[in-house]
Design a protein around this nucleic acid. Structure first.
Lengths: 234, 234
DNA sequence: TAAGAAGTATTGGTTGGACCAAATGATTGT
DNA sequence: ACAATCATTTGGTCCAACCAATACTTCTTA
């Protein structure tokens, strides 16, 4: 994944084909359309199809036989299905609190794991997102993005790509709660640096390898978000 | 591998680069020569180099950054020869353990929340899945389903639809690990009731509202799965 | 002198077409 | 009915060109 989070063509094709398998459209033993046909189907080059199929082969999802074809070998395991595809994303209060509860579970553990596993590069990324948020005081969109980047950087620091993907899949909801929290906090000058301070404290705990403290601070951070959102009217 | 056992060019390049790393010629952090240079070095096309690098990337041996280069990320993975188990699908082992780590995080909290929130109907569903698993001793598929239903019933008992959806999205992976664990346990009569006992203990803790105990029991349950799966992969 | 902007170079990503190689299926001959 | 041959299909490899992201260098401005 590029730092701009733009997905590569072969990654997209890789995911689409896995989705076809997960959805039952393709079953074990089935033969995929030939490469040239897939290229036409997805409107990409045959090279991109080959790269995607290579990923599927390495993932043991397909078996590729020259002169014969590409066959479905196993159900997809690598790619976590988009868990939120069936959950209506709106600011309905119940769903919002459930999301926050999920975040509490996932992100507190992310913080704990990050404290144990973050390397220098990870810590730099986390620090950068904090600085970016501070620098974006007058830029709501940049501040929003920097806030999310902070949480994403911690998820990456766990060095667990599945966990990382799971957090990434929560982005729309997180943007939503971050936006609501920031709006609330911008109403009072005393609150403006609050998020910064909370993020900073979490970062320090992670950088010092204080796993349990990082976990508790992240729990407090998300519980505080929850309290503030309950104050807001919907 | 073709039926004539003729190796593909990108497989050869993949192995050569791994050998370079294993021999110490390339170290973690080192930057590989650019793709075009590697193509000239190995007298193959840039496409073949890209396919080989893709394999290295997926194997987590290198990190590829557009506009920057290809960097050695990990030492060459030890190539496991023929897998001993046909049940455990040849997925990327790292991803499997990452999945289990995610399950540990999510499901232990599910158990904790279920202990606080499960009502009579929830408890009955959990109990039913345990009974169903016991009754399915000679029916592998039914036992597999009942095992998964157990975990799903606990997720439902949290009364958090988002969390429930998240667990449901892990079904393919969970089916896989459940199947591998069950096959291992069926090899010894003493082990046959092990899953039943573990599930029963979790159920009792949940039914008694013992949140922390339910959490710890589920952690132990999943950690045991992890250990058994690591045994199977030898 | 330092910081920021602009320009340049490097390197990975994608495309499309051509050709090679392996496997399969169809056709022909015995 | 079977074997040999040929044609077709489909994956493997190659190539050159172009696009996109990142890093580095140079220039400008305060």
């Amino acid at each position: 994944m590029t730092s701009t989070n733009k997905q590569k063509v072969y990654e997209i094709i890789f995911q689409k084909i896995q989705h076809e398998i997960a959805a039952g459209h393709l079953k074990i033993g089935d033969k995929l359309p030939p490469e040239r046909e897939l290229a036409a189907l997805y409107s990409v080059s045959r090279t991109s199809i080959r790269e995607a199929l290579r990923l599927l082969e390495v993932s043991d999802v397909v078996e590729i036989r020259q002169g014969d074809g590409t066959f479905i070998k196993n159900k997809s395991l690598h790619q976590v299905q988009d868990p939120l595809s069936n959950v209506l994303l709106k600011t309905d209060k119940v769903v919002l609190y459930e999301m926050l509860e999920l975040r509490l579970i996932l992100e507190s553990q992310c913080a704990a794991l990050a404290a144990l596993r973050a390397d220098g590069h990870d810590l730099e990324k986390i620090a950068q997102s904090i600085e970016a948020m501070k620098a974006a005081e007058d830029n709501e969109e940049a501040g929003l993005q920097a806030d999310f980047d902070f949480h994403m950087a911690i998820a990456k620091s766990t060095h667990n790509s599945v966990l990382e993907q799971m957090i990434a899949s929560l982005e729309p909801h997180m943007q939503n709660t971050i936006e609501a929290t920031r709006k609330h906090r911008l109403s009072s000058k005393a609150n403006i640096t609050r998020t910064f301070d909370e993020h900073k404290a979490i970062y320090l705990a992670i950088s010092r390898g204080e796993s349990e403290k990082a976990k508790l601070l992240m729990e407090d951070h998300i519980r505080t978000i929850r309290e503030e959102i309950s104050e807001l009217s919907f």
